[in-house]
């Protein structure tokens, strides 16, 4: 597969107002004298996305993932570095470039609040000069995929967050973009809505071959959707590979989750390296290549009042936590 996005040495620095002290006096002082600090939101990263993939960009708050998306979509001008998306530079060829991309910014919608979403779709048709027949076909197809035939006819202000997100998503798809950026698409949604949205992304990716780049805090999004993952921390990329590689990297590890009959304190652990989320629960991560799980379990059962035991492969959250720990 060819790369649809190639970014090299991408850096973005911001100059931000930085106040040392809090309080009223400091506020007055900032009226005539302000201190600024340079912040490197994205630090010299190389980033590639293969055509037809769903690529996840994950990281904690302030890790630089949204800034990266904004540079890739042409919203922000990088401080240095180069971006090539479908042979175009997002900033230099902006007006031509944005015809080929769709962007869903979770908290910055484009629907008209007082009117049904259909009205905004018609405006999109004129903005992107979509042919009448294409517009009709796409609208019909996506309304069916999203199952929102009634919803698009109601004023947006009357819709639930999940319904609104579906309508926003449809809006980003109407002009048949080859690449879609989704900035935290499942933020604030309930479990059912998240699941529906993920199924829709998968279906569109499969049927239309559209490439998706999504940022998220929700590791379920990554687990259920992404072919490739980039993990960012403090403006740097700390992992960039396929989801399978990430799984393989840690798959040999297992998690032993214990439920106790009575509350346990750290003093009772008898040297077991165990994480206690609460007094009745204990979690141990073990590497079967280094430790005999059977012996480990036997020893636990002999020394601790175990009510229930569950052995599972390590979950993605723990993997990401581990990667962060190594980077920090």
């Amino acid at each position: 597969m060819e790369n649809i996005i190639s970014a090299k040495g991408l850096t973005k620095e911001f100059k931000v107002h930085h106040r040392q002290k809090e309080g009223l006096m400091a506020s007055f002082k900032s009226l005539y004298k302000r201190e600024f600090k340079n912040i490197t939101a994205v630090n010299n990263i190389d980033f590639h996305v293969k055509e037809g993939n769903i690529h996840g960009l994950i990281g904690s708050n302030g890790s630089g993932k949204s800034t990266t998306i904004k540079m890739l979509s042409g919203i922000l001008l990088p401080t240095s570095g180069s971006i090539n998306v479908m042979g175009l530079s997002p900033w230099k060829n902006r007006t031509q470039y944005v015809k080929n991309i769709g962007v869903l910014l979770g908290q910055k919608g484009q629907l008209n609040w007082e009117l049904p979403a259909l009205e905004t779709y018609h405006l999109q048709k004129h903005i992107y000069k979509i042919k009448e027949s294409n517009f009709r076909n796409n609208l019909e197809y996506y309304i069916d995929v999203f199952n929102i035939d009634d919803i698009v006819r109601k004023p947006v202000r009357n819709l639930s967050l999940g319904e609104r997100m579906k309508c926003e998503f449809l809006c980003a798809l109407l002009h048949e973009p080859k690449l879609i950026f989704l900035d935290e698409p499942t933020i604030g949604l309930d479990v059912t809505s998240k699941d529906t949205l993920r199924k829709i992304i998968k279906k569109i990716n499969k049927e239309k071959g559209i490439t998706f780049v999504l940022t998220t805090h929700d590791l379920d999004d990554v687990e259920n959707l992404c072919h490739e993952i980039t993990i960012m921390n403090r403006g740097n990329i700390i992992f960039n590979d396929s989801f399978d590689k990430l799984s393989q990297h840690f798959s040999q590890k297992k998690t032993i989750r214990l439920k106790f009959l009575e509350p346990i304190t750290k003093n009772q652990l008898n040297g077991f390296s165990m994480y206690l989320p609460d007094a009745y629960t204990g979690i141990i991560e073990v590497d079967p290549q280094k430790t005999d799980i059977g012996l480990q379990v036997k020893s636990i059962l002999e020394h601790l009042p175990v009510k229930d035991i569950d052995i599972k492969p390590i979950d993605l959250e723990s993997v990401v936590r581990e990667i962060y720990k190594q980077d920090n």
């Binding site: 042409g74 919203i75 944005v98």
Partner: peptide, 14 residues
């Protein structure tokens, strides 16, 4: 105020 200029930059016009 809300950073919505992003949306203008995402349309194929000046």
């Amino acid at each position: 105020k809300y950073g919505l200029f992003d949306r203008l930059l995402l349309t194929p016009y000046p």
